[in-house]
């Protein structure tokens, strides 16, 4: 098997707050294979965005602090690199797109200037070449009349078009890894479908780490999934198998609580729900963090946090239950 494009080992991230040091990501490890689309799924506050931002050291430190871990890319640990070297990587070998394209673009620069900026920083192109390449990139992301659009300011574009501009910027230097943090959450379903189609077409060019809360998006685009809860990975595996036959009670609950299209409701039928709330960082339960909301919880779950263990080929789960007993 080829070596992974990106490997995260035992990453722990904390935030200093008035309530003390809170652990947002608790010793997670995963890898991204070349040409793979990997999804990181979880609800708000589970640490998925913090994990992604740590990869490029984009978290404000302080209050954030990476307590332990390694992020291996190209044989080196990104966490040990100097800021200058990291700067050369960002947008070049690893790039990122964010949830809200409106706040991620500079409102007073034209689209062309913003895409060209990346190219001028990382390549030997001159301004004219960079603008030409920017237009090519815009047509790559299927923005109509790309040459004209170079002159546009972000406010002249719709949300979907702005997200296309963000993707064009991210692709400018043909990165090996693309990190997409909730790229379609702020968009309407029809536009979401277009952007997902675009991301799917990028698979051959780059490995993608997509962060989302939407299991539908996962099913559409990802080969492999990591499910996060309270700063930990609770289950991982190939997307199809995991969604069809989840092993962790949380994953199962999450899937069940989505109203599925075409499943005719009986009158008065209720949706399956996961009781309780997502624990906040300062109220982390003891033992397995999911046990207060889990209907299968046993005595051992209250005291011992289960380790992520291999259940079958490529499938891992951290749960004390026997797999398949759900």
């Amino acid at each position: 098997m080829s070596s992974p494009e990106l490997e995260i080992q035992n990453l722990t991230v904390s935030f200093s707050t008035t309530k003390g040091k809170l652990i947002a990501v608790n010793g997670i490890s995963f890898h991204l294979n070349p040409g793979e689309t990997l999804a990181l799924v979880g609800e708000s506050g589970c640490g998925k965005t913090v994990s992604a931002l740590s990869i490029l050291r984009l978290l404000p430190e302080p209050p954030a602090e990476i307590l332990s871990g390694k992020i291996i890319f190209d044989g080196q640990d990104l966490l040990s690199l100097r800021a200058k070297v990291l700067q050369d990587l960002r947008g070049h070998s690893i790039s990122m797109i964010f949830q809200d394209p409106t706040t991620s673009l500079n409102p007073v620069l034209t689209v062309g200037e913003q895409i060209a900026e990346t190219l001028l920083r990382h390549t030997a192109m001159n301004r004219r070449e960079a603008l030409q390449k920017s237009a090519d990139l815009l047509s790559r992301v299927e923005l109509p009349s790309p040459k004209e659009k170079l002159q546009y300011y972000p406010h002249q574009l719709s949300g979907g078009m702005r997200q296309r501009v963000m993707i064009a910027m991210a692709l400018a230097c043909s990165p090996r890894v693309l990190i997409a943090d909730e790229p379609t959450t702020a968009l309407d379903v029809l536009i979401q479908a277009q952007i997902l189609e675009l991301l799917r077409s990028l698979k051959k060019e780059t490995s993608i780490l997509i962060i989302t809360h939407d299991l539908g998006v996962v099913a559409e685009i990802a080969q492999r999934v990591l499910v996060m809860y309270a700063g930990e990975i609770v289950e991982s595996g190939p997307a199809k198998a995991l969604l069809k036959n989840p092993f962790h009670p949380y994953t199962k609950g999450l899937i069940a609580s989505i109203p599925k299209l075409g499943t005719k409701k009986r009158p008065g039928a209720r949706l399956e729900e996961i009781p309780g709330n997502v624990p906040s960082l300062d109220q982390r339960p003891s033992g397995c963090p999911f046990h207060p909301r889990c209907s299968w919880a046993m005595e051992i779950c209250k005291t011992q946090n289960p380790q992520l263990r291999m259940i079958e080929a490529q499938r891992q789960v951290s749960c004390h239950l026997e797999p398949g007993s759900l």
Binding site: L190, Q194, A239, L243, K244, L261
Partner: peptide
């Protein structure tokens, strides 16, 4: 029809024809 088609479905590879609409509202 387009709206219903555009919803990401949990069963990947289900037999829906992908006619995604071009353009914006």
């Amino acid at each position: 029809i387009a709206l219903l088609n555009a919803i990401p479905s949990l069963e990947s590879g289900r037999s829906k024809q992908k006619v995604s609409l071009k353009g914006d509202i």
